[in-house]
Design a protein around this nucleic acid. Structure first.
Length: 543
RNA sequence: GCUCCGGUAGCUCAGCUGGAUAGAGCAACGGAUUUCUAAUCCGUAGGUCACAGGUUCGAGCCCUGUCCGGAGUACCA
């Protein structure tokens, strides 16, 4: 209906010689204002120098619409045009859902296009924390949304196993290892104190008991990296996240990509040496101050490989590139983007999603996060405590730009008040009705059901809710915001529960109506299941 | 100081690129079950959309300023 009205109204506007780019259609909040509404008359009032009501009248005068789709329209003060859908259209849409099944909600916007979503990208220096968790679920869900919008999506994890941090990790492991052998070696300054390194040291000791303090740091570094990556990957797997590409920063050095960036920038006259370091004249590119790309020690800062990496992303030819960062990396991307700009590379297709921090609440108290891990802070521990489904839902139920309060007490409640179970219950409830129907000899018979019987108030409301699903997916895709989906599914579940309370589905005295309602419930369940699948949350048959 | 995010009901938050009487969950209070799962539904109450100006037919949303909270402002990532 949206597409139909859009094309019809656009044609009408052209016919009158009025601008078409201001056309907007939205769903009114109140049912009495119709199923779709346009504010075009008010939007054009200024240009046409006429009253919105007059414009609406002229626009709609003699304008005929397919009665199989639009039953009627009304013009209301101050100039809204409200469209009401026909009953035939409604039932046709239910049939559409039943036909689409697992495909219902998929869009065509990204058809034939590729997208890359980079997320997590934590260096293998320790287990994923609760903070990484938000980014993990956010990125994966967004990738699902893009995939549902038609894109061919690559999920990518970028990591750095060169440089100072990893050397510190190796030294920290070495210290732990020696500690186990009874030698006291102090942790390096700024080293990693987490107890997980003790576990790693233990397994290293059992595999290679003969290492000494004189052995190469690389042995420890490599072992630490591999062990910790195994921990990280297992956490990702537990929460249902699979990356297609693990991109190693080191390869950028080996292939000379790092030097290429320096050469290009130098050629552009945007590099200079000062105090033994190489500086990038970002101040000439609208950034407050110049940045160091290569330290006086000869090691690059993180900015340089980041730039080279993004140059590679551009070269790889994605139609859309999405970077997910935590708020603490907020200053990293302007440098990268401005570097791409001066290298004359495409950059408009790169989108950055920044998410704010996560605060854990237990018994109403903030759980203090410390790198020394006094309280539980790892993603694994969170999954242990509340389960993967709940973790996924809670992480994306709020907009990424908002601070997230993760209420552990609410998350752990298995019985009540927990929105995850509310959603899953809606799905299970439908399955339960199907089972009941089968017992009584009433199977869902979508082919022969007379859907025109579905005309009661809360039934129509429920159908309308299921029809919003593709719009919600598209909204998430446009805005690169995933939190609209859980909100929507919650509303859909509410509409279902309301329907359930008002009407009896299995009614042996009214088999035709029962069949129609069963067909509708099948459409609702399809919608719920597809939505839950995008969220990466299970859809139980019974609870 | 500067940059970014936030400030909406007691609490946690929505509010779809400016639209119709600002919404939901939780908490509080009151109701609904001989009936397909009550893990549900209905009702009541709760608001100076931080504050002050501005833009226009219309502002929670846009602009300017102020206040409060968070993040950043490294030759850490």
């Amino acid at each position: 209906m949206f597409e139909y009205l859009t094309t019809q109204l656009t044609a009408r506007l052209e016919q009158l010689g009025w601008p078409t780019d201001r056309l907007q259609l939205s769903r009114p909040k109140k049912a009495e204002n119709g199923d779709w509404a346009s504010n075009i008359a008010m939007a054009l009032a200024r240009d046409l120098k006429r009253s919105p009501m007059q414009i609406a009248e002229e626009l709609m005068d003699g304008f005929t619409l397919d009665s199989g789709i639009v039953e009627k329209f009304e013009i209301l003060n101050p100039g809204f045009i409200n469209f009401f859908q026909s009953a035939d259209y409604l039932t046709a849409q239910v049939r559409h859902i039943l036909k689409e099944k697992d495909e219902y909600g998929k869009g065509a916007f990204g058809k034939g296009k590729t997208a890359q979503v980079e997320f997590v990208s934590a260096n293998p220096t320790g287990p994923l924390t609760v903070g990484h968790g938000r980014q993990t679920v956010l990125g994966d869900t967004l990738a699902n949304i893009l995939s549902w919008s038609g894109y061919d999506v690559t999920r990518e994890y970028y990591f750095n196993n060169a440089g100072r941090q990893m050397r510190l990790l190796g030294e920290s492991l070495k210290a732990r290892y020696m500690e186990l052998k009874g030698e006291s070696i102090t942790l390096p300054d700024g080293g990693y104190e987490g107890m997980y390194l003790l576990d790693v040291a233990n397994s290293l000791l059992s595999e290679k008991p003969d290492l000494t303090a004189d052995d190469e740091i690389d042995i420890f570094k490599t072992y630490a990296e591999e062990s910790i990556f195994a921990i990280i990957k297992s956490s990702l797997e537990r929460i249902g996240v699979v990356h297609d590409v693990f991109y190693n920063e080191r390869s950028l050095y080996e292939t000379g990509k790092i030097d290429e960036v320096l050469d290009i920038l130098r050629e552009k006259g945007l590099l200079y040496d000062k105090d033994g370091a190489t500086w990038f004249k970002t101040s000439e590119l609208g950034i407050e101050q110049d940045r160091v790309l290569v330290k006086s020690s000869g090691e690059p800062t993180y900015r340089l490989p980041d730039i080279a990496y993004h140059r590679e992303k551009v070269a790889r030819g994605f139609d859309l590139v999405v970077d997910i960062f935590g708020a603490d990396h907020i200053d990293a991307y302007p440098d990268v983007l401005s570097a791409l700009k001066v290298m004359d590379l495409k950059h408009e297709h790169i989108e950055v999603v920044i998410h704010q921090f996560v605060t854990l609440l237990r018994s109403g108290e903030v759980v203090k996060m410390s790198t020394r891990k006094a309280n539980f802070v790892t993603l694994d521990e969170l999954i242990d405590e509340v389960g993967a489904d709940v973790v996924r839902y809670f992480y994306i139920m709020r907009s990424a730009s908002s601070h997230l309060n993760f209420d552990l007490d609410l998350a752990k409640r298995q019985t009540d008040e927990n929105p995850v179970f509310y959603l899953q219950y809606a799905h299970a409830r439908i399955s339960s009705i199907f089972r009941r129907g089968l017992e009584r000899g009433l199977a869902s018979d979508t082919e022969n059901a007379d859907l025109s019987l579905l005309d009661e108030e809360f039934t129509v409301a429920l159908i309308n809710k299921t029809l919003e699903f593709p719009e919600v997916i598209d909204h998430c895709r446009r805005a690169l915001e995933v939190h609209h989906l859980p909100s929507y599914l919650f509303e859909l579940a509410t509409a279902l529960h309301k329907f359930y309370t008002e009407y009896k589905v299995i009614d042996l005295d009214a088999p035709e109506l029962s069949k129609a309602r069963l067909a509708l419930l099948e459409a609702v369940q399809i919608t719920l299941r597809n939505g839950l699948r995008i969220l990466g949350i299970s859809a139980p048959e019974q609870m």
